[in-house]
Design a protein around this nucleic acid. Sequence first.
DNA 1: GGTAGACCTGGACGC
DNA 2: GCGTCCAGGTCTACC
Length: 292
Amino acid sequence: MTFSLKTPTSFNLPAVVRSHGWIQMPPFAETTDHGLAYIIRLNTGKVLRFEVHAVDGNLRVSATALLSEVEQDELSHTVRWMLDLEQDFTEFYSRACQEPKLIKMVERQAGRVLRSPTLFEDVIRTLLTTNTLWKHTLRMCRELITRYGDPLPCDIELHAFPTPEQLAQVDEPTLREQCRMGYRAPYVNELAQRVVSGELDLETLKTSSLPTIELRKELMGIKGVGGYAAANLLMLLGRYDYVPVDSWALKVVSNEFYGGEKVSPKQVLSTFERWGKWQGLVYWFWDWSPTV
DNA sequence: GGTAGACCTGGACGC
DNA sequence: GCGTCCAGGTCTACC
């Protein structure tokens, strides 16, 4: 079945789809016309694949299954969240267009960051990016999904991302052994347990009115989420007050602003401080000079 | 508040 | 083939 969604005035679907590495991780995929494809498990338990295409200035969403009214509402709401359709970038663009290194992103109407349907899923993905190479992150994520996620009925080789309930049933040694996630296994297991027990309601953080600093504290209360992971997750929540400083950030900031001299995380942070509540976004979409 | 060492995996490298 | 080193963030203990 198919339905349409209205887009905001400044919106570029391929720019959102390619905003970061999530699109390389299943069950995300990019369509041939640079739209979004994803396999989702709806609250009713129905598993389907949907695609989002840009058509005549709007979005066309097509699903591999017939949907009830409730299911279509859920899918519509989820797509809006995943593509960050609600956020207004007018203020940011007016500042960014005065910075030569941000002109390209303004012209591309970039700035929206691709999200998973749930914050739980984004936290798990972020945990899998820490202290490892991207290649290994992709492998861990693939194992997690193919082993524990629900299969797509029309193609059982493809799977949805596992729910907290499904991951809570997998013990730590099994996660270590089957997904090769090492010391991250207890973090994933504990997070799933906390969400299932109701001790941690991650999804309410998506619409929380807490100040960003408080939201950061909440996120850093999750085992395995440190400064980098929290800043990354805040970006996904539409809060850009923190720069996710990782080894890549140290490298590009050194190259761009310090003539290749070694820099500290503090120096990275001070580089973008003047951008205030937009600094994470500025860092993310900065037109970095090629590193030597 | 700052720092050192441990935590894991897998790739690169030397022998 | 085996052993060693290294990259990648976070946690914990200690100062």
